[in-house]
Design a protein around this nucleic acid. Structure first.
Length: 217
DNA sequence: AACTCGGGGCA
DNA sequence: TGCCCAGAGTT
């Protein structure tokens, strides 16, 4: 595992996301919005969104329909807009307008589940955590770190057991970059992958590709 | 465990 | 055109 992380770290020496360089409130909104859409899309939308809305009160000052239109390009926008307004109401009513630091408080917020809460505590409050998103899950299973039928929670536990606690957050970022730009869902870069030697799935994919080419010829 | 929300990016 | 995306809530 240490070898895998070192190789990936060399492939992506500055593995970090723009989402993480925000204050806790904006980070929470950004990660909530990022569900089932790429963070590049989120960055485009939040660039304008965070100029218009700065505080929880700002999100509550407009009709729901207006907020829906402001985030429409992200997708799943009706759910997300509704969650954001309810979340802001809870922050003002129960947490003094601040994002709570405790994981169990975060998951009480509408639209904030386990993964989002992990991202917030690790990137906003410096608490080591691993959020198993689609990239982390796919990469972990392809590399054999987790089994194909492992649940998201099981993948998270295995990663935490394999990596020292102080490296959880960094490991999370590395696996995301590896999954997004190299070990992609479609067309993974197996032929040029430095981890091919220890990746059974990658070797299988290479075989399938060569046999398919032979068939075509 | 399965279903629903959903527009944008990409091949 | 079809697949995928820093998921969460409901049933």
């Amino acid at each position: 595992m240490a070898y895998i992380l070192r190789v990936i770290g060399e492939m992506f020496p500055d593995a970090h996301c723009e989402l993480n360089h925000r204050n806790p409130f904006e980070l929470t909104i950004a990660v909530l919005l990022s569900a089932q859409c790429t963070d590049e899309t989120v960055n485009k939308v939040t660039a304008d969104l965070f100029k218009k809305y700065e505080t929880p009160a700002d999100y509550l000052a407009v009709p729901l329909e207006e907020l829906e239109q402001d985030i429409r390009r992200i997708g799943l926008y009706r759910n997300k807009a509704s969650h954001i307004q309810k979340l802001c109401r809870m922050l003002l009513d129960e947490y003094g307008g601040e994002v709570p630091r405790r994981h169990e408080d975060l998951t009480r917020l509408p639209g904030v589940g386990r993964k989002t809460a992990n991202v917030v505590v690790s990137n906003a409050f410096g608490v080591p955590a691993i959020a198993v998103d689609t990239h982390v899950e796919r990469v972990s299973k392809r590399l054999g770190i987790a089994k194909a039928d492992d649940s998201v929670l099981e993948v998270e536990k295995k990663l935490m057991k394999l990596v020292p606690r102080e490296q959880w957050t960094d490991t999370h970022h590395r696996l995301i970059f590896f999954g997004r730009y190299h070990c992609k869902a479609q067309n993974p870069q197996c032929p040029v992958c430095p981890l091919l030697d220890l990746c059974k799935e990658g070797q299988q994919r290479m075989k399938m590709n060569t046999s398919r080419k032979a068939k075509a010829n």
